[in-house]
Write a protein that binds this DNA or RNA. Structure first.
Lengths: 225, 225
DNA sequence: TTGCCTGTTTCTGGATCCATTATGGAGGAG
DNA sequence: CTCCTCCATAATGGATCCAGAAACAGGCAA
């Protein structure tokens, strides 16, 4: 009796598309054809439709009636605003989370952070950075709060990558310094400091991001039409 | 040439279910059977499934694989947390919105407010109160921000009603006073004051709400199992 | 040449049928 | 009498087929 859960087909499709979108294989503006995805998985179009609904709930695709699905493309103001939302919500998530974070988590955070500092590969950085922040929020037991935070990360994922591409390793040094401040505050169980550092971290990222308007050109990577 | 849009069937079903849930006809914890809804609308189960996916994206139902849909039931802490999220996000929405609100909107706000003060019917109050706040955010052109705010209102809708039921008309007087402060701040185009009043409005509501833990009993209205 | 109209094609939306999984009750063992 | 097991039932998940809307290409007229 394996505890293997035999995921529903629609979940599998959703997971795969999610990975593709988050990894940048499907750039913003790119259309997603149900039939193409369906035969890619050897299923009918129905689970694909369900998967697309799930992803639209997560902010990863947008659905237009009778016109299909596409990866959302955000303009400069919208990205900035999502960062403003993150700036307000994620500190709350962190404050809620800290009381439930034990020393094992803190240790794990330091391990992730050391891997971030060791490995400067872009794709790897994006994954680890996300993992780092999500782990700091993991003590927060509200699915609403966590889900909302995840959605924000999803919608801005592509622009995080574009930003890191143009701002280079210098940006990573700053991120590293700020991450370590956050870890220390968590270890001291100091929610006020943690909140302050995190809000500042996100705010500075947003401001820095706005200094690179070239990221928001018509279509940064293919994705015509 | 009518601009009538011939809504998709799934949208119609979603709209109807949405209204039913928000009006309290379907209480938290209540299961939603696809087949029942389907024959209620004379359609197949497929558009119902799509509608349920939409509603789950809006936070109005929760889906569990192979177990169907139910109206989410929140505990005390979760509701409080959603109010904390509202307290942080809605002031941002208001600040973003104010520059785009013209005098016509202000006038409309005063009309809604006068209707709230005139009509003390509970159901009507809930609708008008929501309409009021959403109108103050209507100048904000970000679908992400507006969508998130709407989701928060959706998830707490049932507890807003339960709260008004137990706290009575006294609560309405306070709400009225605070609404008028917000209108004035908007009319003066003073985002700082507006933000302050709104944050205080939500915070005080949250605190007051927590003084009635009896609302979070096993099941306030039917909805067994 | 340019703009509009129309026919064709392609893709999404919906209906029906089948497979799979959860649920609830009856019956038997301890 | 209680608890476990097994089975019948009902509800969800998926496949296939069909209808309708949108994009595209070609032709016609100004």
């Amino acid at each position: 009796m394996t505890t293997e859960v035999q995921l529903a087909m629609s979940e599998q499709v959703a997971a795969h598309l999610r990975a593709q979108i988050l990894s940048g294989t499907m750039p913003p503006g790119g259309r997603i054809r149900q039939e193409v995805v369906a035969e890619q998985f050897g299923t009918s179009r129905l689970p694909v439709r369900e998967a697309l609904r799930m992803l639209s709930a997560e902010g990863l695709v947008e659905l237009e009636p009778n016109k299909g699905a596409r990866v959302p493309m955000l303009d400069e103001h919208e990205v900035s605003l999502v960062y403003s939302m993150r700036e307000r919500l994620e500190p709350l998530a962190l404050v809620e989370s800290i009381p439930h974070l034990d020393d094992d988590i803190v240790e794990e955070l330091r391990i992730i952070q050391s891997r971030i500092e060791a490995d400067t590969e872009l794709q790897e950085f994006l994954i680890l950075d996300r993992e780092f922040h999500m782990l700091t929020y993991s003590g927060c037991d509200s699915e609403h709060l966590l889900g909302t935070v995840r959605r924000f990360w999803n919608t801005t994922q592509h622009y995080r990558r574009a930003f890191m591409e143009v701002s280079g390793p210098r940006r990573m040094w700053i991120v590293n310094a700020e991450h370590n401040l956050i870890i220390d505050a968590i270890e001291r169980r100091d929610p006020d400091d943690a909140e302050r550092y995190l809000a500042g971290h996100i705010r500075r990222t947003r401001i820095e991001l706005l200094r690179h308007p070239e990221m928001f050109g018509p279509a940064s990577t293919g994705a015509s039409r």
